[in-house]
Computed example of a mutant assay.
Amino acid sequence: MEEKITNLLETYFATEAEFQDCFVVDINHSNKKLEVFVDSDSAMTFAKCQRISRYLEGYLDEQKPLGEEYVLDVSSPGVDRPLKFYRQYLKNVGRTLEVTTTDGETYTGQLKEASPSEIVLEAKMRVQEGKRKKTVVEDIRIANDAIKKSIVKISF
C-alpha cells in the first residue's frame, strides 16, 4: 500500500507545477487509517496538504484499497519527526539539531552545512583546560550513513 501511494504521489508531483518541489517523507498505514507525510523544498502550506488529500481521496474512493470507510491524514512532518532526506537537511541549515549517531553518541548544535555525504554541526563543547573546564565552539562532521536520528530543536 505504502509503495502504491508513494508512486501515485510522485507521479502527481511530477505533473503538477505547484508540487514539483514536494516529496513523500513517510507513510503509515494501519487497518482503515492512512497517514501521509509530505514535505517541500519551499513552504509546505495547508493548502498544498489539502489539495494532496483531495487527490488521494479520489484514488481511495475509486479503488477502495481501504474499503468504504477510512481515515486519511495528509500533513507535513512536524518538528518532532526525524529528518530522513538530504533535502530536509538543506531546508534546516541554520537551525539547531539533535543528532544521534549509530554508535550511540548524541550531538546538539546548529546545522552549518549539509551535503549528500555528511552534515556539519557547530556545537558548544565543554573541554578540560588545566584544572578548569572551558566552553569551546567546534565543528562536528557526521557522515550521513552514521546518523541514526536527527530532530530539529525549537528554542523559545
Rank of each mutant, 00 (worst) to 15 (best):
A143H: 12
D80Q: 15
E16W: 09
K131S: 12
A17M: 13
I142W: 02
M1Q: 11
A146W: 09
R95P: 06
V93I: 15
D80P: 15
E118Q: 14
V79G: 03
R54S: 13
R132V: 09
K32S: 13
N28R: 15
K134V: 10
L97P: 02
E129Q: 11
V79I: 13
Y89V: 01
K112P: 04
A146F: 11
V93L: 07
I151K: 15
K112F: 00
K64V: 07
L83K: 10
N144E: 05
Q110W: 02
V137S: 13
Q20A: 08
S40P: 03
E62P: 07
E105D: 08
K133L: 06
V136S: 07
R126F: 06
G94V: 01
S76I: 01
Q63R: 12
S117F: 12
E113F: 00
A123F: 02
R81E: 11
A143D: 12
M1E: 11
P82F: 02
R54Y: 06
N92Q: 14
R87D: 08
D80K: 14
K131V: 09
R51P: 04
L90E: 15
I52Q: 03
S115A: 12
L66K: 13
T11P: 02
L97N: 01
S40T: 09
K4A: 13
S76H: 04
G130E: 05
L83E: 07
N144R: 15
E2Q: 10
L60S: 02
L97K: 00
N7Y: 08
D139C: 00
K124V: 12
E113N: 07
D39M: 05
R54M: 10
P77R: 02
E113C: 01
T15S: 12
R54G: 08
Q20G: 04
R54V: 08
E138M: 08
E18P: 05
L90W: 06
T108V: 13
V36F: 01
T100L: 08
K33R: 15
E69A: 09
S30A: 12
D21V: 00
V120Y: 00
A114R: 00
I52F: 01
P82S: 08
Y55E: 08
L34Y: 06
N28V: 12
L83T: 09
Y70P: 00
F156H: 06
